[in-house]
Amino acid sequence: MLGKLNEMQMEELLKKQVTGRIACTDAGVPYIVPVNYVYDGKQVIGHSTMGKKIEMMRKNPRVCFAVDDIKTIFNWQSVIAWGRFEEITDIAEKEQAMMAITHRLMPFAEKPANHPSHGLSEREDDIGTKLDLILYKIVLVNKTGRFERN
């Protein structure tokens, strides 16, 4: 059976997952990349270092975000959301965003000390000194969800 997810089901899926994909475009060229994230009920919060994704989203902040829960090819659910990239520059908001990301992702990290590039580390001096993390949010303006069940 194919169907549409209702608002509550879409919210649940966005909050449950930790990895999604951001699609962005520059000069008509699409680019999609997996990202770790946390969802606060209004926006997707993520982090990155400087690279193609950040460069493209700075040029064109209109993006699409997708997340899935795939159990089998006939048992899955998916949310596609459209939104606007905003780089987080306020220090207090950056700290809150990084704390939310760390608390959400840390349970999935086997050895956090090995992942300072994700802002996950047992050593505070690893974070922010060896690389510059860019914190951002995708403010969602519309979303749709689908599912299939046996």
Rank of each mutant, 00 (worst) to 15 (best):
D132K: 15
K130C: 02
W82G: 06
K4R: 05
C24K: 03
F65D: 04
I80L: 07
K4L: 08
L14Y: 02
V38Y: 06
E12Y: 07
C64T: 15
Y31T: 01
M99A: 15
D125S: 11
H103P: 00
R21T: 15
A27Q: 14
K143L: 14
P116R: 14
L131P: 00
L13M: 01
E86C: 06
A97T: 06
V29G: 00
M50Y: 09
K42N: 12
F85P: 11
E12P: 00
Y39G: 03
K137R: 10
K94Q: 15
L135R: 12
T89M: 13
L14A: 02
C24M: 07
V35Q: 02
F65R: 00
G83F: 04
V79T: 09
Q77Y: 03
N60M: 06
M1L: 13
G41W: 01
V79Q: 10
D132A: 06
C64W: 06
Q9W: 04
K71M: 07
V67F: 05
L133K: 10
C24V: 05
D69A: 06
P112R: 04
S117P: 01
N60V: 03
N142A: 13
E55F: 03
I32M: 11
W82M: 09
Y136W: 04
K15Y: 02
E122P: 01
Q96E: 14
G119V: 03
P112Y: 05
E148Y: 08
C64G: 15
T102R: 09
M57K: 01
K16N: 11
G128Q: 02
I80A: 03
K4S: 04
Q9R: 09
I45R: 00
K130Y: 09
V18E: 03
D69Q: 11
M50H: 11
F147M: 09
M10Q: 05
R62P: 00
V44D: 00
L140D: 01
L131H: 14
Q43H: 03
R58W: 05
Y136K: 05
T144Y: 07
V18A: 10
R58S: 05
M8P: 00
E7Y: 06
M1C: 08
F147E: 04
S78K: 01
D125A: 10
K52R: 14
G28R: 09
T49G: 14
Q9N: 07
G128P: 05
M1H: 12
I32G: 13
D69F: 08
M99N: 15
C24Q: 02
I54P: 07
Y37V: 10
V38T: 12
I32T: 08
Q9K: 11
V29Y: 06
Q96F: 08
D90R: 03
